[in-house]
Design a binder for these strands. Structure first.
Lengths: 251, 251
DNA sequence: CCTTGTCAAGAGCGGCGCTCTTGTTTCTTG
DNA sequence: CAAGAAACAAGAGCGCCGCTCTTGACAAGG
């Protein structure tokens, strides 16, 4: 919501040389409404046909205006995509945060499992949006700066889990694997930024667990487990449970 | 190479009602050459602009013929994409097989590591082809049957590694996690098909390790480690080494 | 020789992203 | 309150795209 307003403000700045002064006019309200409607229709088209088939003209048709009129609201198809990407990151981030705070009183590994399952549930419910953010990037599309905030919400939840687990001794450090100076420095920066007091070994296992989360969801959703695994739910839970054990016990 | 010939034969059958009789005519030779040239140009376009931007017309322009003429060789853009997908699977599969047989006399975990690094090296060298097969599927494109063979080459290498490791006692079974009937049945089928005598616990850890391989490559290549990890090479090796330990020791 | 089958080429269909121009509506300001 | 400025929807048009249908050239087999 926030970022949408920011985007449309940036858009205004880009179009008009001067911003009048007031902002609560009827036109502005109409603009926000239309912007939202365009995004809603675009999101539906995305869910129906995927990101590559997202056509500005089709969206415009359904909204009931002419294609060129959409450019008043989104300066390009890519900007529209960016808005959808941000929304997707926010959606999955919110699910992860909700899953975490709903199980805050439980053990860290249980919370981790809940967050993983929330991410997967969201992915299964919104496959194209998942592909948009965790699949191959749209070719020739560079993720703008505005996406990195929303993109960090899920990792943030997981890093806080690591911090909590280390603080409460639920996560044991285990033996620190040998690693290069550069990696130690990366981990140090990560610790400084978002995971105080979490030792390198735990950060490493946390990233391994995270890679398993996305790896398993990718394998499942992109068809690489076809004819191999049939009960995806049970398989995911099994693998995540094992990953959790490894994460907290280092074994 | 094999599969290309198969595809083009299927194509011929589809186009002509009767196949003359001989096959080494000058026309036939020209046809294979042109087919290969089209594929080569298409692969370069893919590497330059990604799969969504692969344009039959552009390829035709560069090959020096008219767009409609390409349809004599590939009945649709999707069939051309399929050929590229098969080639990509074959390429990475061949790398994996080569990496494995080059280190056949070494320990199983060292071989596993070599295979993982070969896959990643291929992915880094051919990002768009990697995205084509391990990223989000091309929207509205259903992977035809002909791709599953080439797609299995890498998994096959890994499963044989598991088999070897179990046979030589380099991989210990460890404790078998509790799992549902359905999963046990999936594992049993996998064992029957491609990994004789490999216990469920090892199959589970093997799939976990494989999900880490692809998960880490995805994270790296799709930008999710941006500003977090800087020395990707060292990070990947570190994580894979740890995954290997977990795979063979169950800890 | 002439039929037959393969081929490149062209024209054309509808759709795409995007731009530029043209009036109209809405809001602000003198 | 009216005049000017800003924002707007709409239309026409550009050069792409994948794909189809038709036409005429050309080589091989009878």
């Amino acid at each position: 919501m926030f970022l949408v307003t920011a985007l449309e403000m940036r858009h205004n700045v880009g179009m008009a040389t001067t911003v009048p002064n007031a902002s609560r006019t009827a036109r502005d309200r109409a603009r926000v409404e239309l912007t939202d409607e365009i995004k809603a229709v675009a999101r539906r088209h995305l869910a129906d046909h995927g990101s590559a088939a997202l056509s500005l003209r089709a969206v415009a048709r359904e909204v009931g205006m002419v294609s060129s009129a959409v450019y008043r609201y989104f300066p390009s198809r890519d900007e529209l995509l960016t808005a959808l990407i941000i929304d997707a990151y926010d959606a999955v981030g919110e699910r992860a945060e909700a899953a975490d705070s709903a199980s805050r009183d439980r053990a860290v590994d249980a919370r981790w499992l809940k967050v993983c399952e929330a991410v997967r549930a969201w992915a299964l419910a919104n496959p194209h949006e998942y592909a948009l953010i965790y699949g191959s990037p749209v070719p020739g599309y560079a993720a703008p700066q505005a996406t990195i905030g929303p993109a960090s919400r899920v990792p943030w939840v997981l890093l806080r889990l690591l911090t909590d687990g280390v603080a409460s001794d639920e996560i044991v450090a285990g033996e620190t694997p040998a690693m290069s100076r550069t990696i130690r420095s990366d981990f140090a920066q990560l610790r400084r930024t978002a995971a105080p007091a979490v030792p390198d070994a735990v950060l490493s296992r946390g990233l391994a667990a995270w890679s398993q989360v996305l790896g398993n969801i990718n394998l499942e959703m992109f068809g690489h487990l076809h004819n191999v695994i049939h009960d995806y739910d049970a398989f995911f839970t099994l693998q995540m449970r094992r990953a959790c054990e490894f994460l907290v016990r280092g074994a």
